[in-house]
Every structure is written in structure tokens, then in C-alpha cells.
């Protein structure tokens, strides 16, 4: 079976790759495009470590075929924040010690950014349910939820 040729946009850059039909977007990001910030924790959509944003929707990279990327716009952790300035969510995670091992962190940051993009003032409950698809085994979520609240305040120009 010949590989498929896919043209897509990743973190604003035009990207082309070849893939087999069963390959997931996660496989291609990590193994073909070298974007290893997106992690694999389960491969079944249950942990959120591979969270990416596709055409504005938060999805799991492991639950999307790479061939489906044609014509789409994809944002990964590598596309969040600028070289000279971290995104407020990233900065809040640092300041609030919202990570321990750091493995789930890229997925949480992508998911939290997607939340704040559509809901700039989420309640604690809204944050917790939005992030329920992102497993963290280290923190007990307390400092993660606080960091998202902190980032929301920063983004509204109200230092928390």
C-alpha cells in the first residue's frame, strides 16, 4: 500500500509528510515531524498527554489519523508561546509549581489554552471538567487548577 501524501499546517508552518493510512497524527508528529513535545501516555484517548488543537478544536493526537490532517491547521505545544515570551498558561504553570514530572504538562497546557481561548473566565468546576481528559498522577490537580485560574486572571489583565 503506497503512502499518502499530506499537506497541512502545523504551528503556522506549511508542512508536508508521507504516512501510512493507519498512522495516527500523534505518530507523525513525534516520529516523522520530530515534534516530541506531544506525548503518548495511553494511545486510547484516555490520558490527554497528546492533546493538540485542530482547526480550533481540542483533540487527542492518538485518536486522529494523520491522513485526516490534509488542509487542517494544527497547534501543538511547540506552537504555544513565543520564543521571547511564554504563554500566560506556561508562565502560570512555572510560577505556581503546577508540574512535577512534567510529562502530562504539554497536554495540560494545550488543553488549558484551548479553554481560555473560548472561556476567559472559567469557574473552578468548569476548569476541572474541561481538564478531566488530561490525567496527571503527580500533582492531585490542585496546583494545575490554580495555575489555570492564575493564567485566566493574567490574560484579562488582572494579576491574581
Amino acid at each position: 500500500m503506497a503512502k499518502s501524501h499530506v499537506s497541512t499546517t502545523v504551528n503556522g508552518d506549511p508542512v508536508e509528510f508521507l504516512c501510512d493510512a493507519p498512522e495516527t497524527m500523534l505518530d507523525v508528529l513525534r516520529n516523522t515531524l520530530g515534534l516530541t513535545g506531544t506525548k503518548e501516555g495511553c494511545g486510547t484517548g484516555d490520558c490527554g498527554a497528546c492533546s493538540i488543537i485542530v482547526d480550533g478544536r481540542l483533540v487527542c493526537g492518538c485518536l486522529m489519523l494523520a491522513v485526516e490532517a490534509t488542509g487542517k491547521s494544527i497547534t501543538t505545544i511547540e506552537g504555544i508561546g513565543a520564543p521571547d515570551r511564554l504563554h500566560p498558561v506556561q508562565q502560570a504553570f512555572l510560577e505556581d509549581a503546577a508540574l512535577q514530572c512534567g510529562f502530562c504538562t504539554p497536554g495540560f497546557i494545550v488543553a488549558a489554552k484551548a479553554l481560555l481561548d473560548r472561556n476567559p473566565d472559567p469557574s473552578e468546576t468548569e476548569i476541572r471538567y474541561w481538564l478531566a481528559g488530561n490525567l496527571c498522577r503527580c500533582t492531585g490537580y490542585d496546583k494545575i487548577v490554580r495555575a489555570v485560574q492564575h493564567a485566566a486572571a493574567e490574560m484579562k489583565g488582572q494579576p491574581a
Binding site: T36, T38, I77, L86, F93, L94, G102, T105, P106, I109
Partner: peptide, 8 residues
């Protein structure tokens, strides 16, 4: 090691 871990 924080910056490396929040940027992937």
C-alpha cells in the same frame, strides 16, 4: 527545568 517542561 521548568521552561523545558512547559514548552515540550
Amino acid at each position: 527545568d521548568g521552561a523545558d517542561k512547559v514548552t515540550g
